[in-house]
Amino acid sequence: MPRDDGYWFPAKRYGWGWGPPANWQGWSVVAAFAVLIAVGAALILPHSRAEFLGYVVVLCVLLTGVCWWKGEPPRWRWGGD
Protein backbone atom coordinates (compact mmCIF):
# COMPACT_ATOMS: atom_id res chain seq x y z
CA MET A 1 0.00 0.00 0.00
CA PRO A 2 1.50 3.40 -0.91
CA ARG A 3 2.16 5.90 1.82
CA ASP A 4 -0.01 8.99 2.14
CA ASP A 5 2.21 12.09 2.20
CA GLY A 6 -0.45 13.90 4.24
CA TYR A 7 0.60 12.12 7.42
CA TRP A 8 2.51 14.25 9.89
CA PHE A 9 3.88 11.20 11.69
CA PRO A 10 4.74 8.12 9.59
CA ALA A 11 4.60 4.69 11.16
CA LYS A 12 7.79 3.12 12.45
CA ARG A 13 9.29 0.47 10.20
CA TYR A 14 9.59 -2.03 13.06
CA GLY A 15 7.22 -2.31 16.00
CA TRP A 16 4.15 -0.29 16.88
CA GLY A 17 3.84 3.49 16.86
CA TRP A 18 5.15 6.47 14.97
CA GLY A 19 8.57 7.61 13.89
CA PRO A 20 10.00 11.09 13.53
CA PRO A 21 7.77 13.74 11.92
CA ALA A 22 7.57 13.79 8.13
CA ASN A 23 6.86 17.50 7.57
CA TRP A 24 6.95 20.92 9.21
CA GLN A 25 3.57 20.49 10.92
CA GLY A 26 4.79 17.41 12.76
CA TRP A 27 8.04 19.09 13.72
CA SER A 28 6.15 22.12 15.03
CA VAL A 29 4.04 19.82 17.25
CA VAL A 30 7.19 18.17 18.63
CA ALA A 31 8.85 21.57 19.15
CA ALA A 32 5.77 22.90 20.98
CA PHE A 33 5.77 19.78 23.15
CA ALA A 34 9.44 20.34 24.07
CA VAL A 35 8.85 24.05 24.80
CA LEU A 36 5.83 23.26 27.00
CA ILE A 37 7.86 20.68 28.95
CA ALA A 38 10.64 23.25 29.47
CA VAL A 39 8.20 25.96 30.56
CA GLY A 40 6.52 23.53 32.94
CA ALA A 41 9.89 22.54 34.36
CA ALA A 42 10.75 26.16 34.99
CA LEU A 43 7.39 27.18 36.47
CA ILE A 44 5.86 24.07 38.08
CA LEU A 45 8.76 21.80 39.02
CA PRO A 46 10.29 24.10 41.67
CA HIS A 47 6.99 24.08 43.56
CA SER A 48 5.68 20.53 43.20
CA ARG A 49 7.10 17.44 41.55
CA ALA A 50 3.70 15.71 41.63
CA GLU A 51 2.02 18.57 39.76
CA PHE A 52 4.83 18.60 37.21
CA LEU A 53 4.44 14.86 36.71
CA GLY A 54 0.70 15.32 36.12
CA TYR A 55 1.45 18.14 33.68
CA VAL A 56 3.87 15.93 31.74
CA VAL A 57 1.38 13.06 31.64
CA VAL A 58 -1.29 15.39 30.21
CA LEU A 59 1.13 16.68 27.56
CA CYS A 60 2.12 13.12 26.62
CA VAL A 61 -1.53 12.11 26.25
CA LEU A 62 -2.12 15.17 24.04
CA LEU A 63 0.95 14.38 21.91
CA THR A 64 -0.20 10.78 21.51
CA GLY A 65 -3.65 12.05 20.48
CA VAL A 66 -2.15 14.31 17.82
CA CYS A 67 0.00 11.43 16.54
CA TRP A 68 -3.05 9.16 16.40
CA TRP A 69 -5.11 11.85 14.61
CA LYS A 70 -2.50 13.07 12.09
CA GLY A 71 -0.26 10.00 11.82
CA GLU A 72 -0.40 6.75 9.90
CA PRO A 73 -2.79 4.23 11.42
CA PRO A 74 -0.82 2.31 14.04
CA ARG A 75 -0.29 -1.43 13.73
CA TRP A 76 2.53 -3.84 14.39
CA ARG A 77 5.10 -3.76 11.58
CA TRP A 78 7.94 -6.14 10.77
CA GLY A 79 9.91 -3.95 8.36
CA GLY A 80 8.47 -5.17 5.06
CA ASP A 81 6.19 -2.16 4.47
Score class of each variant (00 low, 15 high):
79 G>Q: 04
67 C>T: 05
81 D>H: 12
27 W>R: 04
77 R>C: 04
29 V>P: 00
43 L>H: 11
32 A>H: 02
5 D>V: 06
79 G>I: 08
34 A>Y: 01
19 G>R: 02
21 P>V: 05
5 D>N: 06
3 R>Q: 07
33 F>D: 03
56 V>Y: 07
37 I>N: 03
1 M>S: 11
60 C>Q: 13
58 V>I: 15
77 R>W: 07
7 Y>K: 14
73 P>D: 08
29 V>T: 11
28 S>D: 05
3 R>M: 02
8 W>M: 12
4 D>L: 13
29 V>Y: 01
75 R>A: 10
50 A>I: 15
23 N>E: 04
76 W>N: 03
32 A>P: 06
48 S>L: 01
41 A>E: 12
68 W>G: 00
30 V>W: 05
15 G>E: 08
49 R>T: 03
56 V>G: 08
38 A>Y: 14
16 W>T: 15
64 T>E: 10
1 M>R: 10
32 A>Q: 06
20 P>I: 04
80 G>I: 07
43 L>C: 08
34 A>E: 03
57 V>T: 14
57 V>Q: 02
2 P>W: 11
55 Y>E: 02
23 N>L: 03
80 G>A: 11
37 I>H: 05
55 Y>W: 14
56 V>S: 10
20 P>Q: 12
36 L>A: 12
37 I>Q: 07
27 W>K: 01
33 F>C: 00
49 R>N: 12
77 R>N: 13
6 G>K: 01
1 M>E: 09
10 P>Q: 14
43 L>N: 10
61 V>W: 12
57 V>M: 08
40 G>V: 15
66 V>T: 05
28 S>E: 02
37 I>S: 00
37 I>E: 02
19 G>P: 01
